[in-house]
Amino acid sequence: MAILEISNLCIEFPTRRGVLSAVEHLSLSIEAGEILGIVGESGAGKSLTGNAIVGLLEPPGHVTGGVILLNGQDITHLSDAEMRKVRGAQIGVIFQDPLTSLDPLYTIGQQLVQTIQTHMDLSRADAKRRAIDLLVEVGIPAPERRFDAYPHEFSGGMRQRVVIALALCCDPCLIIADEPTTALDVSVQAQIIALLKRLAREKGVATMLVTHDMGVIAEAADRVAVIYSGRLAEIGEVRSVIDTPKHPYTKGLMDSIPQIGQNLELLPNIPGAMPRLDSRPDGCAFNPRCEKAKAVCREKMSGLFTAGEKKQMAACWVYAGGDEYA
């Protein structure tokens, strides 16, 4: 059974100029030990999806439809207090900037012990032992010595490791990592990716890795979901999506990424820009930028069709011949 199962998730922002639908009918699932990458441009709704799962949507945004199941339990409309319990005990959250996730006034030891004790029935000494085990787990050298250090005494990469340790405090079954490597240097980025992969493999944590960087997805994810204008464009195993993208948007996106040794004078690119949420065209949101757009693309939103082997699926009318999923 999937650890996380989202079906038909809709997120809306009521504004005075009308309701903005930021995420529309998004369905995906993550198995234990699996890393699902969520990739998309800024404003595509990828971070909102992560925030909706942990109940941290900024008002006035709210979930207007769909179901979020965590281990079969419906967590879509939990109260703040209930959500906090679930978030602490079952979901670990890692944000982009490690500095904002840590309290500068407490030592990292205090923060870890406090988090452990709020969610687990442990004595102080046991909680401290567990905290040190966690610091070892995330690869912080000499954890006994670093236990009493303040966040500012750590480098960026070490801070992000502490944030991951905090997220792991209560043995979560799901980790939501929102751009966990964006603020870090490339050499440190590789270390953090390796850590996330090891946690998924060894502890069976289901991980949702939200990022704009296809390189990170290629390195870390098992499967990837491509989001365009709040809708799922394509989902499948990471190698098949990167090597043989099916949705015209994914194709254009992959082509526009410069690659070492390519030696092109100009980079291929998709003309135009992603539509704003208040001026999304009828039918497929990508149709004005798509070379293959047909009449039906301008009228009706496409469902998810099988578009390749190994359950690769694309929301595109080109694949209308294949089996339709949900």
Binding site: Q191, A194, A218
Partner: peptide
């Protein structure tokens, strides 16, 4: 060489051994 070895790369063919340490 270190920089080239650590950049995430789309091919996914190379399995990187991330180098420890920071600037």
């Amino acid at each position: 060489r270190l920089l080239l070895a650590t950049i995430p790369d789309l091919s996914g063919e190379t399995t990187h051994v991330p180098l420890e340490g920071e600037v």
